[in-house]
Design a protein around this nucleic acid. Structure first.
Lengths: 392, 392
DNA sequence: CGTCAGCACTAATGCGCTTTAGGGACGCGT
DNA sequence: ACGCGTCCCTAAAGCGCATTAGTGCTGACG
């Protein structure tokens, strides 16, 4: 595995450019034929380095560096010539070398801490990632991706990435209640953007933001408000909220917002139950709610899969959606449009969300100070799964 | 952004270890206090380097390198002492430095060339990725992830990654009919694993495999055979196959296998139509098929979302699943279990698939020669959406 | 008692790039 | 004619690690 690619010390190339001055320099000094041509065996292409450019352009390596990085110190003539040679050779800076000389790794990291099984059901993440990509790729930043089982492991990954100099910053998802990650990242000095972060006016115990950590907020309260208003307007008084993971900050926010909204709108009975987002627990929660004493006339699900599963359960119990039960999904997707009836859903635009987060991180890496930015409130798309309740 | 972290040339540390021999060496020579302690300002932790270890362990950097890489050249005593110091300091090799000294980037790449919109609906990919991760992470390999719009862009990404020394190998998905990627990767000498690759006995025009490109095959023919057999056994004679993207190799294979299987089982009318995997086109194809002259009694969908959408369309047209129409999804997921009726589906185990691919790539990187490995044939999970046709 | 092998370890070099410290050549002012 | 500043450009150092070529030192062997 460890091939000895190195020439012996005696083989060191001592060719030097003698001629001076750009106009009379030898543009194409006698270059030895590429090794492939000599050996006949197919050798994978060698990547060109700045040394190659320097030789062919008849200047020093430093001049090449200045020229290619738009730094002063070379004439325009030389700069353009160097550029041309670089293009011609198909040169790209080695990120390893760049990183080593202090430029950073040109990479940002993203860790998903969810059990593998629940990953596939969350279409949200892939869309988020593709939004992130749109921004990163135009800046030629790489995305280092990792799936882990839990929070501790996630922290270990950050530590490792930092120590290995693998990333310049990270995007943190699924903020939790007593989240250890911001403090960790801050202590490492690793710039980060927390997506779906704190609600400024709702969790004031959160102290002043860390200097290198931005937050992209979503207004869960307003979103839940829209849902509650919609349901109350239809006449629903008994609502169940099949929420997501108990530890997540946005779960807490949604639960609280539901309670607050319901109170102000005079709903008699609302309650939330937490789940692991799986269709199994969604179905089970639905079954329990509908079989209970005062069954709800509407259920709000924290994701699309559970909503579909719940609607299926209702159907199986002989109920009709939306006649006997209204269903709202917190997350619009193909799923909500594909099922029958089509589900009323909250459209979050995960792609835009990812874009926003990536932009913020890019800003941070560029030296912009950390801040909180707000993401537009998601829109409730009313479809066929919500209607006035039959029995009051 | 470009902070001058560098000490002047005069500041070079000339401290030297005078004492010789491991047992009497000064284990903890007078170390200057960490900068943070001096300045008082919070400074992000500096990552320890081998030089730090060397100093504290009282040995040379080379000795440290030998010790930490399990290479001969140091005594066991020294080795363990160095290890201890390294642990204590929380040292991790900088991947940048490692890459620069020829060890590779310790990273593999994965490019998804699908429109962003269609990404979210394919739960397959996230599961594939999480399977890949399971293997990569235990080897401490990173996964560089990229979403692009099309095939040319994908090739450009490979080129760039190669030139920038960002990855040691890549995992290629969605093999196409006249796929340019294997040849490109081969010419770059970039090890790769193609997942869902060629069917050995079905596309003999494919020449001898490239020396650094392995393939993880799936037996689409056998899978389609199982489906056809199941449907034929129930008595279906008119079947429509709502397939995926026309250019993909596996689409071609499935279409061909369906035709072959149907012929051998005496089905009268089978046909395939290609789509973009979206629920919209799945619904549309279903509508067209059911409204046509000889409507099918069963439809096979190339993914779960289209299957659900198709079932919805049938419902909307007043048909009952499975009484009037049987539905099979090529891809099992929460979706298939959550809808009502639950869908008969082909369970591919995308996670295992990813694991397999990653293992193969790791082998390749370790010097194992390229080869074709077969993934177990997916299993047909029969649920409630398939039954004997009512009208023959 | 000289010699040579073998061991434990250090010095030095290179990977590809950035950056700092010069170093000639030229022009301008006195 | 000399000093001085500018402009272009080169030399050299350094980032953190792996690796190769030594370098003393010990012990065994003749």
């Amino acid at each position: 595995m460890r091939a000895s690619r190195r020439p012996g010390p005696g083989a060191h190339d001592v060719t030097r450019t003698i001629l001076r001055g750009p106009t009379i320099a030898a543009h194409e000094p006698p270059v030895e034929p590429p090794p492939a041509a000599r050996t006949g065996r197919r050798v994978p292409a060698r990547r060109p380095t700045m040394k190659d450019i320097a030789r062919r352009a008849g200047v020093s390596e430093s001049a090449v560096s200045f020229a290619l990085n738009d730094r002063p110190g070379v004439s325009e003539t030389t700069r353009s010539r160097v550029r041309r040679v670089a293009d011609q050779l198909g040169w790209r800076a080695s990120t390893a070398a760049r990183a080593l000389s202090g430029e950073g790794a040109a990479t940002v990291g993203l860790v998903l801490a969810r059990p593998a099984s629940s990953l596939g059901i969350e279409s949200f993440f892939l869309q988020l990632v593709s939004g992130i990509q749109e921004v990163l790729s135009e800046r030629h930043l790489g995305l280092l991706f990792r799936v882990v089982a839990g929070a501790e492991e996630e922290c270990a990954v950050y530590r490792r990435w930092w120590a290995e100099q693998r990333v310049d910053g990270v995007i943190v998802v699924d903020p939790r209640i007593g989240d250890p990650r911001p403090a960790l990242l801050d202590s490492l000095g690793l710039p980060a953007v927390v997506v779906g972060g704190r609600e400024v006016d709702r969790e004031p115990q959160e102290p002043v933001p860390y200097p290198v950590i931005s937050t992209v907020r979503v207004d869960d309260a307003a979103a839940m408000g829209a849902i509650v208003e919609h349901l109350a307007g239809l006449g629903h008084r008994r609502v169940v909220h099949v929420a997501g993971l108990a530890g997540l900050a946005h779960t807490t926010r949604r639960v609280a917002s539901l309670r607050a909204g319901a109170a102000s709108l005079g709903m008699s009975a609302v309650r939330s139950v937490t789940t692991d987002y799986s269709e199994g627990q969604g179905a089970e929660a639905t079954r329990l709610a509908l079989a209970g004493p005062e069954p709800p006339t509407a259920i709000i699900y924290d994701n699309d899969v559970m909503a579909v599963a719940g609607a299926g359960v209702a159907l199986g119990m002989g109920l009709s959606v939306p006649r006997d039960l209204s269903v709202v999904a917190w997350e619009d997707s193909a799923l909500c449009r594909a099922t029958h009836p089509r589900l009323t859903a909250l459209d979050r635009d995960a792609t835009a969300f990812g874009r926003r987060a990536a932009e913020e991180l890019v800003g941070l890496l560029g030296g912009r100070p950390a801040r909180d930015v707000a993401q537009p409130t998601p829109e409730l798309v009313v479809r066929d799964s919500t209607a006035p309740p039959l029995r009051g």
